[in-house]
Every structure is written in structure tokens, then in C-alpha cells.
Design a protein around this nucleic acid. Structure first.
Lengths: 346, 346
DNA sequence: ACGTGTCAGTGAATCGTGTGACTACGCTAG
DNA sequence: CTAGCGTAGTCACACGATTCACTGACACGT
């Protein structure tokens, strides 16, 4: 059951009555050589008739570059805004004559295999890579570029090195609440191991910002699956937190989903949002604005980043050695809605 | 500014004091040749010391296959469940010694370019491809496999050929409402051109199911951006629909986001959900269960599909000619929550 | 007639790997 | 002595596109 062999440039040459060199020159539109229109037409016609497509591997071998840009994504859901950044980056990369594809690594399969298959000219990464994976990229002689959000392309030490973006988003969340007058907040985070790195970074960002502002270190509650049991758990924690002499007046949530859990829990406790309790999310999930009350959140404005990243990629390929991770602050933006207000007067 | 050249098998050979062939045989673990342990060790050591990685393009050229599986995604946000399917498929494909990468096409860049860069062994597609793109795949001699959801791999005619999955999901939505006793429903869809194919399929699914069940054809409202204006528009339409002798008692929404818009609009009109109006979404957005009331929705259970698709890919590569699109019905599941109930008694 | 220049096009090397065909050698059985 | 065999390893080609260096042929000016 053999597929009919795909046509090669030799087939085109034979059909057009010219040499392979001529085919190559004509099809690549080289300005080095000029061919009379008649010859050019013969070649183009033959190529079209045969449905000739140059063999990618052969071309890559000869040229020395594959033209593939590989974006490594963490094994996490891709939200709407990340999705549109992806589309934007794809077009931007395409404009440089290269192709962007993404690999959703996860834990099981090794990045090494994929590198061997693709031979990308550069690897982009959204989150810091594990040392073994970063080594794989380095050994293959492939430049590794971190998205501004990631901060650094590889984990420096252990699993506990959060990316810059995570730290900043946590800090921004707390700063926004502090600006509204909150002095005592709590953190709602997630326990799932897959998300540990993200979660830890965000919590750590809140902690450090609290430290900087001279606030108490916030109590932290880690949740499992976001289900009814989680709502119950949060409700229970809330009743404890809002009692006592120094009650918690605001909640930093891991993302908008967990903020929704918090809203449900607050409703169950009879706490009004934001009068009794302010709630801040992260991610600007499109659904957030239709919650009751509409959710104040922090948005990653990835789209602005896309162009910058692509430029960085181009620069690296020109030979620029190590571009410093660009400023990522402008990427984050507080989206103010009704779920955050001033703390209750005492 | 030239990067240090990456080591080739010739470098390894020189370092180990053997020929290139020996290096190749040893590293590929061929059983054709047997080499004494000492030689084998020398080669392996040299390769390790140099950090040798075989050149992907050269290998692909020689082998005649790149080992890359390309998944073409539509330019739409990737939800949580689609994301986990992606991870699952990646591992499953990796287990067959190939690599799965995804390309988020969108409108601008051509798939053709990417095919030329990657030379995939097979192209998977989530939604039917435009004829031009399908041709590009076919001309390159690459088998094209449709995910069960897509139904067929290429649009048959015009932009108006919805995929099977879309039709089914719309039908399922209406059937569920009909099972609850609703006789007159309305449809809330989306006007964005990017989503036109999806939107049209879902609406069409609802329409045909209504026809089959002998119900009236539902009125349709197409919304722009899901914002406050959209809420207003829906509220206005609702007041019209629920008046009169045969009032609308349920809403089929394009997805959970638009269902949330509907909930907000219903609240504004003073309509209670589900007592006065039932609302059904699509996608099982994780946030849906935390809306008030929790949203009844339809879930694409992609994870069950992953293995099946990968098996299909393997089959195609073995030479099986054209696998019929598998049954996709089990992929869809109604998730019953509180936003759908019986219609109000008249 | 000669040097120079341009046009139209070709030959052959090159990229790095994988592998079937082959050699060189030592040993043993007949 | 030699045919036969197993071991240890090498040679050289193939994969397909690209591109440098080159050849004829012709035109032009002196």
C-alpha cells in the first residue's frame, strides 16, 4: 500500500526540460540569475501540474535552518487572552518567514524527543523550564528565549523558583487591595501539583508585597478541585477569618475561577461583597464580569507582548547573544470592577 | 558572531576513533551489527562528552519521514477541557515515537508555509479546513485526519458547511430543553465572523432538532462583544419574547459566556431562572457552576477522544486509506445544573 | 581578430544521517 | 591447504534542495 511518490525538483526539471538547478533558481525567485520569461513559465507550469512542494527536511538540511519556532507551553488551560496572543504571534512569526508551533509538554513525554523531530531555530518558553529540559535545548545548540512573563528561561534551583510574572501579579493584587485601604487580607490558592509553580509564585508575590507595605503576613488556604466541597471549605475558613479583633477584609484569589468559589462561599456565609469582603481574581476570565458582583481581576495583556517577543526572536537569530528579559510590568493591568471596595468601617 | 558549530556524528566518530558508520550503528542500537562493549562505550562516551544530538533535518531526509504530527487548531480560545485533551494527545503521540505540535492558524498566515517548514507525517484538524488549505495538505502528499468532532476534514462547499460536532451540540441542547417540556425556545448566538462557522453550526443544530420534534423554529439573536451593551440587548429581546400567547420559555446559548450574559439580562428583566426562563450553555466552562443559578451546559469530553484519534493516526500511517469519521456522539454530554427546569405553568 | 560583458543555463559539491554491501582477519573443520 | 564462518568494522551511496563556479554562445566596441 504505497502512496504515490511525491514529486521532487528533478521531476519538475525533467518535465520542463531544464536542469534541477534552473528549477531551484526559478522557484526560489533568486535575483542572482535571470531567466527568460518563457523558461520561467515552463518551470512554473511543470511545478504546478505535478503539484510540487519542496521537501522540508531536504531544504532545512541544505539551508542549515528549519525555520521553525517552537513555543513550549505549560500543561495548563489556555485562556481567551493567551489564545489571542498565540494567534498574534503566529502571524508575526510568519511575517519573518518562519513558522510558530506550540508544544504542550506536560510531564510525561520529553521535550528532547520533540526537539529531535523539529530542530527548531529557537525555543520560546512561557514558564521556566526544568533544568533537564533546558539542558536538552542547550545541547542541541538552540537558543532559548523566555517570554517576558516567565522572567528567566530556566529554573535556577529546585521547584520553588517562581517566575517573575507570577510574583508581579501577586504583588499587584495585594497593592490594589492596599490602595483601597485593606490592611489584612487572606490568600486563596490551589493545591494541584501541576499548578504548584504558578500558585507558589502568586502567593509569594502577595507575601512579599505585604512585607514591603508593612502589613501582616496573610493566612493562606489551598483548595483542591473547584467544586461544592471547595465552596464549603472556603465558607468555613471565612467565618474564622472575619471574626476576631483584626478581621480579614479582602481575599487574593489564585485566579478568577477560585474567586468565583470565594464569591459563592461569601454568599453562603451571608457576607456581602464588597461591603463586608473584597475579592480579587486573576486572569480576566470573560465570565468574570457577569458574576455577582462583577469581578475585579488582573489581566495579562499578552497581546502587547506578542510583537516584542517576535522581535526578540528575530534579534536572537541575527546573533544578538542574550537579550535581557524585557520589562513585563506593562503586561499586567488591574481590571477594576465591583468586587473590590473599601474595607468595612469598624 | 557565529555560534559554535554543533557536533555531528563525524565529530563523535573522530573522538571515539571509529568511523561514522559505527557511530550511527551504535547510537541507533541496531541489532544488525554487534559491537564489542568496549567500542560501544567509547562511542557513547564521546557522544555524551560532545553533547551530540542528531540533526533532525538530516535524519528526516534520510528516513523519509519527519515524525511530526501537526494539529491545526482554529483561532479560538482553548478551554480547560480542550487543553487537557491536548496534553493527553501529546503523550499518546509521543508513545508512538512521534511528536505532536499544534498550529494556531487564524486567518493571516498560510498553512502552506508551515507545512513546508515542518513536513508533518499527518495533519490533524479540529475544524474543517478551507478548500485552499486542504488542497495544500493534499498536494504535499500528507494524509489529513479530522478529529471526530470535526466530522469531515474539509469544507464541502462554501463557508456554510458546519461540522458534525457543532450540529450535534446544538441538537443536544434543544433536545434537553424539550425533554424538560419546553416547546418554544430562542437562540442566542454570536456575530463575530471568526466564530461564524461554529455559531452557524450550533444554530443549525438547534433548528433541525426543533424541526424533527415538531417545534416552532426558534427566534435568533446574534450578539457582538459580550459586554454590558450585550446584556442590554438581550434584556430587550427577552421582554419581547416572553410576552404574547406563545412565550419563549428557554434559551439556547452559543456558549457558557453568552449564557452568563443571558443570566445577567434575565436578572435585569426580573425574570427568575429557571422558574420563568431556562438557560442552557455549551462548553462546561469551569466558572459556570458558580453562576447564579449554576449553569446547565453541554460538555465536550475530549479526553475520551484523544486515544481514539491517536490510534487513527497510527492506522493512517500504517497505510489504512481513509478511516471513516468515528462516532462522536459519546463525546457530548449534558451537564445538568439548576439553570434549566420545567417551563412555567400557564 | 581580440578582449570584455552579458545571457541562459548546467555540473557538481554540499548539508548530516542511515544502511546495504563489502573487506580484513582469525579461527576451525574437512 | 582451503572453504566456510563469525567478528569488527568501513565504504560509499542515497535522501532532495541549494548554490558556487563554470561553459557556450552571442554582441559590441576598437
Amino acid at each position: 500500500m504505497d502512496r504515490p511518490r511525491r514529486p521532487t525538483s528533478a521531476d519538475v526539471a525533467a518535465r520542463a526540460g531544464v536542469s534541477r538547478s534552473t528549477v531551484s533558481y526559478v522557484l526560489s525567485g533568486s535575483t542572482q540569475h535571470s531567466f527568460p520569461q518563457a523558461t520561467r513559465d515552463r518551470v512554473l507550469l511543470a511545478a504546478a501540474e505535478l503539484g510540487y512542494t519542496p521537501h522540508a527536511a531536504a531544504r532545512a538540511l541544505r539551508r542549515g535552518t528549519s525555520g521553525v519556532v517552537l513555543l513550549v507551553l505549560a500543561d495548563v488551560p489556555i485562556g481567551a487572552n493567551l489564545g489571542s496572543m498565540l494567534a498574534e504571534m503566529t502571524t508575526a512569526v510568519a511575517a519573518t518567514g518562519r513558522s510558530l508551533v506550540t508544544w504542550t509538554g506536560g510531564v510525561g513525554p520529553t521535550l528532547r524527543e520533540t526537539l529531535a523531530h523539529l530542530d527548531p531555530v529557537v525555543v520560546l518558553t512561557m514558564a521556566p523550564l526544568a533544568p533537564a529540559e533546558a539542558d536538552a535545548v542547550g545541547n542541541a545548540g538552540i537558543p532559548l528565549v523566555a517570554m517576558p512573563y516567565a522572567g528567566s528561561a530556566t529554573q535556577t534551583v529546585g521547584p520553588a523558583a517562581p517566575s517573575r510574572g507570577e510574583l508581579q501579579v501577586g504583588a499587584l493584587q495585594l497593592q490594589h487591595l492596599a490602595a483601597h485601604g485593606h490592611r489584612r487580607v487572606a490568600v486563596l490558592t490551589v493545591a494541584e501539583p501541576r499548578l504548584a509553580l504558578f500558585a507558589h509564585g502568586r502567593v509569594e508575590g502577595v507575601r512579599r508585597a505585604a512585607l514591603d507595605l508593612g502589613l501582616d503576613q496573610p493566612p493562606v488556604l489551598a483548595l483542591g478541585e473547584p467544586d461544592d466541597a471547595a465552596v464549603e471549605a472556603v465558607a468555613q475558613a471565612l467565618t474564622g477569618w472575619v471574626r476576631g479583633p483584626a478581621p480579614v477584609t479582602a481575599l487574593c484569589c489564585y485566579n478568577d475561577l477560585y474567586a468565583a468559589v470565594a464569591l459563592a462561599a461569601a454568599a453562603r456565609c451571608g457576607l456581602r461583597v464588597p461591603q463586608d469582603l473584597s475579592v480579587a481574581g486573576i486572569d480576566d476570565d470573560p465570565l468574570g464580569r457577569f458574576l455577582a458582583p462583577p469581578l475585579t481581576t488582573i489581566r495579562f495583556d499578552f497581546r502587547d507582548t506578542a510583537r516584542a517577543v517576535v522581535e526578540q526572536v528575530a534579534a536572537v537569530l541575527e546573533g544578538a547573544p542574550l537579550p535581557p528579559p524585557g520589562p513585563s510590568s506593562q503586561v499586567l493591568r488591574v481590571v477594576e470592577r465591583a468586587s473590590v471596595g473599601p474595607p468595612p468601617a469598624r
